[in-house]
């Protein structure tokens, strides 16, 4: 049924994709960085500190998106028991944790010159820290339980319940008074970021997504080799 997900076919594609991403990555990174740091204008109010947005916002998006994806696959895996899905979620989680932490750290660096403080206990920052905690739990479970099946089940449950936090993060700035500003880019309606600043934002997002894909593919490849090695021993 899941023929495309079958490891032996996938392996060839993973090799090709890793090669492809490696070959275009540096040029794209240079273009994105030059737009983000040099070519884009400074903000009328925040000045050059607005450039922190070009790493902060994509990192936060990736943190949120990858957790949503993990939760979705975990949900399907929990109900239908599809083994390959847990390999995928396991390979995504560390990248998600890394970008969530980057979002929190760059956010606090951005907070100092704009808000006047590194840290504020407002709803957006608390809920984002909870997300990092859920990632941490998810990864810990895989490290702690050597029995693959038990680890899969517990981590799926963590991901599914952790997903309740996602809409809370998204709407925290609308539901409560927060120091964090409301969303600039809305799912419906126009964005409140000028197009000359949207371009570097999306370029950086694209580059970081490519980076995520690269790490994910390498991790997934490692997992496949690990399984095959186990199978060799059984011969």
């Amino acid at each position: 049924m899941f023929n495309i997900f079958h490891n032996s076919n996938l392996f060839k594609w993973i090799e090709k994709l890793i090669y492809f991403i490696n070959s275009i990555f540096f040029i794209l990174l240079l273009v994105a960085l030059s737009f983000a740091l040099i070519l884009s204008p400074a903000d009328y109010l925040q000045g050059d500190s607005v450039r922190i947005m070009y790493v902060h916002v994509p990192a936060a998006w990736i943190g949120l998106a990858s957790f949503s994806f993990i939760a979705l696959l975990s949900l399907i895996n929990f109900i239908f028991k599809i083994k390959y899905f847990s390999l995928i979620t396991k390979s995504i989680a560390p990248i998600g944790l890394m970008f969530t932490c980057i979002a929190i750290i760059t956010g606090s660096i951005w907070g100092q010159p704009t808000w006047g403080t590194f840290w504020a206990w407002d709803a957006r920052i608390i809920s984002m820290s909870i997300l990092a905690f859920f990632y941490f739990l998810f990864i810990c479970v895989h490290k702690l339980f050597s029995d693959q099946e038990i680890a899969d089940r517990i981590s799926s449950i963590i991901a599914i319940f952790g997903a309740i936090n996602i809409p809370i993060i998204k709407y925290s700035v609308n539901w409560w008074n927060t120091l964090h500003q409301p969303a600039s880019i809305k799912i419906l309606g126009s964005s409140t970021i000028h197009s000359s600043m949207l371009l570097p934002l999306f370029l950086m997002f694209f580059v970081l997504i490519l980076y995520c894909a690269l790490i994910f593919l390498m991790k997934y490849k490692t997992e496949i080799i690990r399984i095959k090695k186990k199978n060799l021993k059984r011969l």
């Binding site: 204008p41 400074a42 009328y44 808000w115 120091l179 500003q181 969303a183 970021i193 000028h194 000359s196």
Partner: peptide, 11 residues
């Protein structure tokens, strides 16, 4: 503390 809004544009 300063709370800025969601608008970003060149000067």
């Amino acid at each position: 503390l300063a709370k800025h809004d969601e608008n970003y544009m060149p000067p």
